[in-house]
């Protein structure tokens, strides 16, 4: 897939049900990578991560982290396969996880 330059996004798991979430542009947590905020500089993402840590302290999410993404014609895509599988769901059950909702 042709993809643009590297950006950074932030992900975590929601405390209550463990579901993967992404930090959206307004600071709310969203369920689809497509709606996540993408930061061109890693430092910006690190700064946003500090904000997200507040939501860890408020017991909304756990294990927040920064990961690399790229812009593609289809929207944001994770650069690493691990993050891509997290953003989609198990590759062996296309009807499980986030991919089921976007089909």
């Amino acid at each position: 897939m042709r993809a643009g330059p590297m950006h950074y996004a932030i992900s975590a798991n929601r405390l209550r049900d463990g579901i993967v979430v992404f930090l959206g542009a307004g600071g709310a947590w969203v369920e689809q990578l497509a709606q996540a905020a993408a930061y061109p500089e890693k430092e910006q993402a690190e700064a946003a991560l500090e904000g997200a840590r507040g939501d860890e302290k408020r017991n909304l999410v756990v294990e927040a982290f920064v990961f690399p993404v790229r812009q593609s014609p289809a929207g944001l895509v994770a650069d690493h396969i691990r993050d891509a599988i997290r953003a989609a769901g198990p590759s062996v059950y296309r009807d499980h996880g986030k991919q089921a909702e976007t089909r």
Binding site: V20, E56, V62, E63, R86
Partner: peptide, 20 residues
């Protein structure tokens, strides 16, 4: 979470890639 983790692990509950 740090305080809880040992308890959830004691009860077989992990946090994996997509969910618990």
């Amino acid at each position: 979470e740090e305080q809880f983790r040992p308890h959830r692990l004691m009860n077989g509950l992990y946090l994996q890639l997509h969910a618990y």
